[in-house]
């Protein structure tokens, strides 16, 4: 088991720490950096609840080795709370009851932010594809899609 010293920027803050070779980025975020919005739903990259934005891309943090995150930029929901687009998404999620048990909600919001940052006017199909890697068992997805669609259509509603 090797140890690795990594420095990465998490939610805008530079963090340096020693990690074990077997630590996943999810382990480090939750257990070392106390970033709890990122969830462990399966541990094998099949549910998306651990999704974060890594170097500008949506990834499943549970199967990313922390040791491979040298110099990485990581963004989770905690790092987006002041983001106007995120606030708009959160408001719509509440309006449309898109968060029921809430366990997939952080991942859905991060995926939604990812969609909105890459496409100006995403279609319903774009949104469905954008969240296709995050599983939800409660909502049936419709309220989530509705919320993201409305958030993408501008702020004044």
């Amino acid at each position: 088991m090797s140890k690795h010293f990594i420095t990465m920027t998490v939610n805008g803050r530079e963090r340096s720490l020693h990690v074990d070779s077997t630590d996943s980025l999810l382990d480090v975020l939750r257990n070392r950096l106390d970033i709890k919005s990122v969830k462990d739903g399966c541990g094998t990259g099949d549910c998306g609840l651990c999704a974060v934005i890594l170097n500008g891309r949506l990834v499943n943090s549970c199967i990313v080795l922390a040791a491979q995150c040298r110099g990485a930029q990581v963004t989770t929901l905690e790092g987006l709370l002041e983001d106007p687009q995120m606030k708009s998404l959160q408001g719509r999620f509440l309006k449309y009851n898109a968060a029921q048990c809430g366990f997939c909600t952080p991942a859905m919001l991060v995926a939604a932010k990812d969609i909105l940052s890459r496409t100006v006017r995403p279609t319903e199909d774009d949104i469905k594809a954008g969240i296709s890697g995050v599983l939800c068992r409660c909502t049936g997805y419709y309220p989530i899609i509705q919320a993201i669609q409305e958030a993408s259509e501008g702020r004044s509603r």
């Binding site: 990259g45 998306g48 999704a51 891309r57 949506l58 990834v59 499943n60 199967i63 990313v64 995926a111 990812d114 594809a129 954008g130 296709s132 890697g133």
Partner: peptide, 9 residues
């Protein structure tokens, strides 16, 4: 292929 997260990595 997979899903967006997998494709990105």
């Amino acid at each position: 292929f997979g899903d967006p997260q997998i494709r990105n990595v």
